[in-house]
Amino acid sequence: MSEWYEKSFGEDYLIVYRHRDFSGARHEVEKMIGWLGLPEGSRVLDLCCGMGRHSLALAEAGYKVTGVDLSETLLAEARSQKGAEAVTWMRSDMRELPLAGGFDAVVNLFTSFGYFEKDEEQVKVLREIQRMLRPGGKFIIDFLNPEHVIRHLVPHSVREEHGVLIDETRRIEDGYVKKDIVLTTGPEGEPRRYHERVKLYTREQFSEMIAAAGLQLDEVHGSYDEEKYVPEHSARMIFRGVRP
């Protein structure tokens, strides 16, 4: 039986998340460059790169970028973008990367974490990040803020994108934020159903996993426009640190 993340990141994902634009990615990359403080030409791994928005913006900024994702559909979308030839694209599970490492930075963005049931599997991802980094290499992990999710969860929403009805139901259950998505094309269309699930971790729990993976946490930001994370208000937990 395949996992939810093996089913959900296909052609319909591009419809559901069409609103994630490339200009927003450029703004976020500008902020990340300031945090990382890396010179042009540095090697950067975008782990779970999706459709390549951040990989392309990082390459535009002068970095040598490798984008890794499990979804061949999203990688094909990334490869179709202008400037895609500047990035090395690769398909892989994030828990076991076919790379030797030596990167100056690894970024893992927009809640591309917490997909697995067991904490040990999440730590495997963090250990791979540690292995990918050279000593002194830096990481950024952009995760949701559980307190914000719980306070602002929208249980149900319906919208239309290019003739496709998108019905989304959200809930907090068993320590996860879960989303069920139903897409229907036209009045006679057969519903297409997907499920997404992300395990919720507090800042303290996430920090413990980072330490268990041999990484050093330096700072937690609340968004790309907030220098400090405030549990009651911040939308995100953006972890920034280094491989000692």
Rank of each mutant, 00 (worst) to 15 (best):
T185K: 13
F9M: 01
D225V: 15
L144F: 11
I150G: 08
M90V: 01
A212S: 10
L38H: 07
G34Q: 01
E117L: 13
Q216P: 03
E188Q: 14
A25V: 01
S157P: 07
R159H: 08
N145M: 11
G34H: 02
F116D: 06
E188A: 14
V87M: 01
F206P: 01
G52D: 05
L144V: 15
S92V: 04
V182P: 09
P98S: 10
V154Y: 10
H54I: 03
A235D: 08
D180W: 00
I166Y: 02
E227L: 06
T111Y: 03
M209W: 02
V44E: 00
R192K: 12
L74A: 10
Y13W: 07
A212V: 11
A235Y: 09
Q122N: 15
I141S: 04
V107I: 15
V242H: 15
M1D: 14
A59G: 05
E120Q: 11
R197L: 02
G189A: 09
E96P: 07
R151H: 15
I150E: 15
Y224D: 04
G67R: 04
R203K: 15
S2E: 12
R170N: 15
Y115Q: 04
L200C: 14
V29S: 01
V182T: 12
L58W: 02
Y17G: 11
G62L: 03
R243V: 07
D180P: 07
I15M: 09
P155F: 07
R192D: 14
M132L: 10
P135C: 07
G175R: 08
L153E: 00
T111C: 07
A86I: 02
D104R: 09
H19T: 06
T66W: 01
E28C: 06
A212L: 14
E160P: 09
W4Q: 00
M90L: 15
R53W: 11
E190T: 12
E11G: 01
Q122I: 06
D69T: 04
A78V: 13
V158D: 06
R20I: 02
D93E: 10
E188D: 15
Y5E: 04
K178D: 05
K179W: 11
E72Y: 04
F103K: 08
R159F: 05
H162P: 08
P244C: 03
E117S: 13
C48F: 02
T202M: 09
R243Q: 13
R243P: 06
R203N: 00
H195F: 15
Q122F: 01
K82E: 14
V87Y: 01
Y13R: 00
K178C: 04
E227G: 06
L74D: 12
L99A: 04
G222A: 03
D21N: 10
W35H: 07
P244I: 04
M237V: 10
V154E: 15
V220K: 04
R127L: 11
Y63K: 03
E72L: 07
A57Q: 00
A213N: 05
A213V: 08
E120R: 11
I141V: 13
L36N: 02
A84W: 01
R20W: 09
L109Y: 00
M94T: 00
V44K: 00
Y63H: 06
K138A: 00
G136K: 14
R151P: 02
G101C: 03
